[in-house]
Design a protein around this nucleic acid. Sequence first.
DNA 1: CGGAATCCACGTTGATACTG
DNA 2: CAGTATCAACGTGGATTCCG
Lengths: 135, 135
Amino acid sequence: MYQPDVYEKMCPTRLVLDRIADKWAVLILHLLRAGPVRFNQLRRTIKGISQKVLSQTLKKLERDGLISRAVFATVPVTVEYALTPLGRTLTDTVAALAHWAEHNIEAVLAAQQAYDRGCPAAAEMVTANDAAEAA
Amino acid sequence: MYQPDVYEKMCPTRLVLDRIADKWAVLILHLLRAGPVRFNQLRRTIKGISQKVLSQTLKKLERDGLISRAVFATVPVTVEYALTPLGRTLTDTVAALAHWAEHNIEAVLAAQQAYDRGCPAAAEMVTANDAAEAA
DNA sequence: CGGAATCCACGTTGATACTG
DNA sequence: CAGTATCAACGTGGATTCCG
């Protein structure tokens, strides 16, 4: 499914994109900003994610050096995930993304409605201001 | 696969994330910064994408009001895709992401190698500076 | 609590072929 | 050129079960 010879050599950005272009990964990174979080704590907060996918995503992020994994020998065992210094530099950018999303979600929804109504021409004219007025 | 009652109402950001957390979408948005681009032009530039997926992705982006689609009645027909004003506001944020990727790709790769070597402890200590020194 | 392993259903992708 | 349609193949995700 993946041809490193074609993708990564040409454009290293794609490798990074493959990681952060993941809804769950972004969500996790965002949640860890406040401090270390335990596995099931993440699981409960990010409603809708399965433990398998959460586990996989955490492992990928750890492999990329974006988060760290700390095991405490309590009974039962406690595992805390936290941002690494590298991971923290990424959350700043992710925060900008979240900011855009919060400010433009209405414009996107308005465009979708216009498109679904059958007039895509109107959709492309939707702006953040238009959406704000409509609200 | 999607429960709007759980996701979108709780956190509208997730809806936006579902769109932009897509490698191809981000790539397309990035390519359109310079100006309108034709379908097969995109297809050739983004090596590895199939025409079906490209078509689907373009349609989603158009529906979200991020790109516009212009048809010219030439023979054969010409179709140009371009950023909408709304889409342009997003590319600024995407550019920040690309910037992070370019500057930290080496740190990520170094972390991956450390992790794969069996010492995840080292991976979480990798920083952009470390990677720069190693290079 | 924090996973790993198994099984299975589903969606998504990639060829291929055809249309306007 | 710019798609759509169809179908088989694949991978990914969810549910469940069990272990340390």
